[in-house]
């Protein structure tokens, strides 16, 4: 069997505002749009993904937060209603998705063999988190590929950002082993914002773009620093400074997603494709992709 591989890695932020602004039939609330810079970037990345040959999308989400190890979705199908606990006014989404349980179990096994605490999630009543749904919807609105969701083990809370970084990297390396063994072509998705300080009030019309801006300038400067390093292909350096960046900007990288994905991709030294950056309720969000294939890699922005 041919060795499996990661064919694309995506940094895919999950503010539910983006799905709300798209007005898909699955989401109940209606919007007048908003956050176009991010959405149009996402739309372009989704078009690229249509040309990528892949079998499964593996997503690491901060909104399935686990404190006892890393958990993997372990049933072939989930269908229900996802209501965002923070922004229920804009996200009430009916989902129906398929899971690649075979690969999930391989990842679970590989991670366990690497000494990582793991658990398969096999409760059929389990509700899929809105981070998974938002990122997957924006990348593949047709939902025509199976997914695997990996929970975020919150080592940053129990130990430190440094421990989180190391454990997330170990998980990424273990997942890569499972992918290679499976023979499958995999898209990795790290679902999160960059800087993550929110406004604690919301305008009466959430999509009123006259009210949208980054929470403060230091968050913006840090985000730009990270994006420049991504653009320059310095992902080892990005992961090295991840604990400090996370602490300074309360970044959602604290869940470990980007460290996991970069480790699984061998810490890319080639330029990332930048699709867009914009704030959502004060947080900094970038849509970014890493394409290992130099023939299809683009300079997008």
């Amino acid at each position: 069997m041919k060795k499996g591989q990661v064919v694309l890695g995506c940094l895919a932020p999950h503010p539910p505002h983006l799905v709300y602004a798209e007005n898909p039939e699955q989401n109940e609330p209606f919007s007048e749009g908003g956050w176009e810079t991010l959405r149009w970037g996402y739309n372009r990345l989704a078009r690229k993904l249509k040309k990528v040959d892949y079998d499964v999308m593996v997503i690491f989400t901060p909104h399935w937060a686990t404190y006892i190890g890393t958990h993997f979705l372990g049933l072939p199908k989930f269908s229900s209603l996802s209501v965002d606990p923070i922004f229920p006014n804009i996200f009430r989404y009916k989902y129906d998705l398929d899971v690649d349980v075979e690969l999930a179990e391989e990842m679970h096994k590989a991670a366990s063999e690497a000494g990582i605490i793991t658990k398969m999630m096999t409760n059929p009543d389990f509700r899929i988190d809105y981070g998974t749904i938002t990122s997957c919807h924006m990348l593949n609105p047709e939902w025509d590929k199976p997914i695997i969701t990996i929970s975020s083990n919150r080592n940053a809370h129990y130990y430190s950002g440094e421990v989180m970084n190391e454990q997330a990297k170990a998980l990424g390396e273990a997942c890569l082993k499972a992918i290679e063994k499976s023979g499958k072509k995999v898209v990795l998705v790290s679902s999160h914002s960059l800087s993550h300080r929110h406004f604690v009030t919301e305008s009466p019309l959430p999509e009123d773009m006259s009210r949208e801006h980054i929470y403060n300038h230091s968050q913006y400067v840090w985000d730009m620093k990270m994006i420049k390093m991504m653009r320059d292909g310095k992902m080892k350096e990005v992961i090295d400074i991840m604990p400090e960046y996370t602490e300074q900007t309360i970044a959602e990288t604290e869940a470990g997603g980007l460290s996991w994905m970069m480790a699984a991709m061998g810490l890319p030294d080639y330029p990332a494709e930048i699709y867009g950056y914009q704030s959502v309720i004060g947080t900094g969000n970038a849509v970014v992709a890493w394409d290992p294939n130099s023939k299809t890699r683009e300079i997008v922005l």
């Binding site: 096999t122 409760n123 009543d125 389990f126 929970s151 929110h198 604690v200």
Partner: peptide
């Protein structure tokens, strides 16, 4: 995050599963 939320559905109904202890 957005201020303080207060449950006001007269009869909220669901089957809940815990993230860790599913």
């Amino acid at each position: 995050i957005v201020g303080h939320q207060i449950q006001a559905h007269p009869e909220p109904e669901w089957t809940h599963v815990d993230d860790d202890f599913h």
